[in-house]
Design a protein around this nucleic acid. Structure first.
Lengths: 184, 184
DNA sequence: ACCAGCATGTAAGATGTTACATGATTAC
DNA sequence: GTAATCATGTAACATCTTACATGCTGGT
């Protein structure tokens, strides 16, 4: 589970942030590889504060008031310790693979292959859009004349995203090709 | 959510299966792209039966007795209907990306890069193992002389797995390369 | 005074994980 | 008969999603 650590990272990168500001950043940069809703973020910020890893400077603890957090030394240490923990590899887990298998098992007569083709085309559009977005980031990012450590790591993460999306585009294009031939 | 549909697919493929048999198959073929524990499977089988999508032939409803299920017409229809539903694209979501970003944000002095390198090497081993496993499947699968519809779909799914794992191997190798240079 | 948007939360339910409990069957 | 294993579950908890509730702030 990485949400608390993603929040610690985001707060070290930009201290004095509020929950909503963090939620907005999770919709952009961080969100490209770790997603979280604002409800999750508020809950997790509460836990991190209770655990003494972050603190808020809010005088007023009122409901609608902005609360800005910063990371305490214990929080930075927790993040550092976490870097060395082993994590299990993310297994492939995707509904479309299940659908393809269902189509194969049902067979051409009992399946509804045209509907599946439409669903795949929809997904393909999503991945192509994301891929285009990443490519525009890459153009901006690779132009860096003398990238430092942080920039090089960001480039690395971006390349992982590009690989992920172009892999899906390739997979889905192949799927369409095969399903359409067999359906005509 | 695809677990019920994955179970329907598995039960159409091999009717008269019990919960434990399904759980074992989720550790093999189906499990390569959709995972579920036996607890989840039992719970979901109960729901599917309550919803009238599957039925069990067990005379005795006793606790330790084997219960074999089969799919009812309503279940097959539910599966067919599901094929056309749109699914959201699986976003990249991985703890190692968060760790890389944390390392970048902490900077060379405050991070523990050697620990991160060890964690990445551990992950790299996992993905290489999986990749080797998929490659051995591929050798067996691609040898098919005249693949029918079902076999071609299985090959497609396997290629998606290969792409996924080799993508991770590539990403992690790049990460190690960059981190090590900067750490020496 | 009011409204739009900012900001923080609560509640309920689905899903997933971990640990444990219990009955039935088979091999010896 | 008893131990191992097969087979089905329960319980507790963590996570994630969806929908909703409430308070604050700035513009008109």
């Amino acid at each position: 589970m990485s949400l608390p650590h993603a929040l610690l990272t985001a707060l070290i990168e930009r201290p004095h942030s509020s929950g909503l500001e963090l939620a907005r950043r999770f919709d952009k940069s961080i969100g490209h590889f770790w997603q979280a809703s604002h409800q999750q973020i508020y809950r997790e910020l509460g836990r991190l504060e209770a655990d003494g890893l972050i603190a808020s400077e809010a005088e007023a603890e009122a409901r609608g008031r902005k609360r800005n957090y910063h990371v305490l030394p214990a929080g930075e240490q927790a993040l550092r310790d976490w870097l060395g923990e082993a994590d299990a590899s993310t297994p492939l887990r995707d509904t479309l693979m299940v659908k393809l298998r269902a189509d194969a098992v049902l067979g051409p007569e009992r399946s509804d292959t045209p509907a599946l083709i439409a669903a795949i085309e929809d997904r393909l559009t999503q991945h192509r859009d994301k891929l285009a977005q990443y490519e525009s980031f890459a153009v901006r990012d690779m132009a860096h004349p003398d990238p430092d450590r942080a920039v090089r790591i960001r480039q690395l993460i971006l390349q992982a995203g590009l690989r992920h999306e172009s892999g899906w585009v390739e997979t889905l294009e192949q799927a369409l090709e095969r399903l359409k031939v067999q359906n005509s």
